[in-house]
């Protein structure tokens, strides 16, 4: 997990170095964060579908819904971070 966080920080740094306009770079990061949040929800629904199809002998809805709710929570965190970054670009611009 720590390697993923290091990779994310590394990519953010490279992006800031590559894009001259730092506000534009922050905007790109915010859109990436929001997109990752949306993708996380999709992944959550895929996991839900997989779990429900593990067995049909018993109903695993409780398990799949609990796991989906965790995906949605993480997704909302990513989306919120994205919108906060977008808001901060507007504040910096003004």
């Amino acid at each position: 997990m720590i390697y993923l966080i290091i990779l994310i920080l590394f990519l953010i740094i490279i992006l800031f170095l590559t894009v001259k306009n730092k506000i534009k770079a922050l905007k790109i990061i915010s859109i990436s964060s929001i997109s990752a949040g949306i993708l996380t929800i999709i992944v959550g629904y895929i996991f839900k579908y997989i779990i429900l199809n593990v067995t049909h002998e018993v109903n695993l809805s409780i398990i799949s819904n609990t796991i989906l709710s965790k995906f949605i929570k993480n997704s909302l965190i990513l989306i919120s971070i994205g919108f906060l970054e977008l808001l901060s670009t507007k504040i910096i611009k003004s």
Binding site: M1, I8, I14, I31, A36, G37, V43, G44, K70
Partner: peptide, 28 residues
């Protein structure tokens, strides 16, 4: 430069998604 930025954005989105998914797996 544009290609590099696009590549970084794609990697960033994928990495964030994988990190988020991994966090759920660890938790569960």
């Amino acid at each position: 430069k544009i290609i590099l930025v696009v590549l970084i954005v794609i990697l960033l989105i994928l990495t964030c998604t994988i990190a988020s998914t991994y966090a759920v797996i660890i938790n569960v």
